[in-house]
Design a protein around this nucleic acid. Structure first.
Length: 271
DNA sequence: ATGGTCGGCAACCGA
């Protein structure tokens, strides 16, 4: 069986439900992982998604800020949420597909929304940056993010860090900008190393090719400037390393009407 | 070097 999975920071799922529908009709992934839903669970547009065939949902939302969700055409066996830094701010949800999806060997999917970290890259004066660094430290030490040799796991989401030199339009000009500072790049890499996670996008498109998933709203012409960053990631455990058959970054979605500043990233995995 | 734009929700906060 082939599982296709999309991660997308939607920046308000209610405002952009028509764009979600447009994407799902065209791409038909089995699983959609959303971040920044900005939507309490009881207001999540489930009916619309069900009509599109996504009848299973794992929601962790709240009013106004943050929020993550996994919607799926396949049933999952379980879902849980993890809290970080002593806050319940809806930045993680995890689902496991197994028997109910017809899988003998289960697969766990972690969907993350890492704190953006504010503007000032100094944890002593900026509590948001301190929170981001602590969040990454907690991710690194969380045992459930250390899949063992045979465990099949996927970690996706808006990790709000562009860790490699060519994950930003200008390494030199971005080195002091939150999302690409050395300390957060090191901490995200430490999360990846601690869990032996494979960076799927970079295994298909190695450096020095530029690769972005986000373009700022603040550019007069985002396409012409092309000052992007790779903030959205798909990682797989070693057991799935040679089973990823494709990855696609849907850059065209950035040009849709009233778009999110992030675009969908879709992976296909042979299970 | 600076300021530039969004969305939620009703004054700013978070991105």
């Amino acid at each position: 069986m082939r599982l296709s999975l999309t991660t997308w920071n939607i920046n308000s799922v209610r405002l952009r439900i028509d764009l979600v529908a447009r994407f799902l009709k065209a791409a038909r992934p089995d699983v959609l992982c959303l971040q920044e839903t900005k939507c309490p669970d009881d207001a999540f547009p489930l009916k619309r998604l069900k009509r599109l065939g996504y009848v299973h949902a794992a929601l962790s939302g709240q009013k106004g800020y943050h929020g993550v969700a996994v919607v799926s055409r396949l049933p999952f066996d379980s879902f849980t949420v993890e809290s970080f830094c002593g806050k319940n701010d809806c930045r993680h949800v995890e689902v496991t597909f197994g028997d109910r999806a017809g899988l003998r060997d289960p697969v766990t999917i972690h969907n993350f929304y890492v704190p953006a970290g504010g503007d000032e890259p100094d944890p002593d004066v900026n509590v948001k940056f301190a929170h981001k660094l602590s969040f990454l430290d907690e991710m690194r030490s969380l045992a459930r993010l250390h899949p063992n040799g045979s465990q099949r796991a996927i970690l996706v989401g808006d990790l709000n860090v562009a860790p490699l030199e060519h994950d930003v339009w200008s390494h030199k000009q971005m080195i002091g900008v939150v999302s690409h500072t050395p300390i957060e790049c090191e901490k995200l890499t430490a999360v990846q190393k601690a869990g032996n996670w494979i960076d799927v996008a970079r295994s298909f498109v190695p450096e020095p090719a530029k690769l972005y998933t986000w373009w700022s709203y603040r550019a007069a012409d985002w396409r012409a400037a092309d000052r992007g960053r790779r903030l959205d990631h798909v990682w797989v455990s070693p057991a799935l390393g040679d089973r990823v058959s494709a990855i696609k970054i849907a850059k065209d979605a950035r040009g849709w009407e009233r778009p999110s500043d992030h675009v969908p990233v879709t992976t296909a995995i042979e299970l």
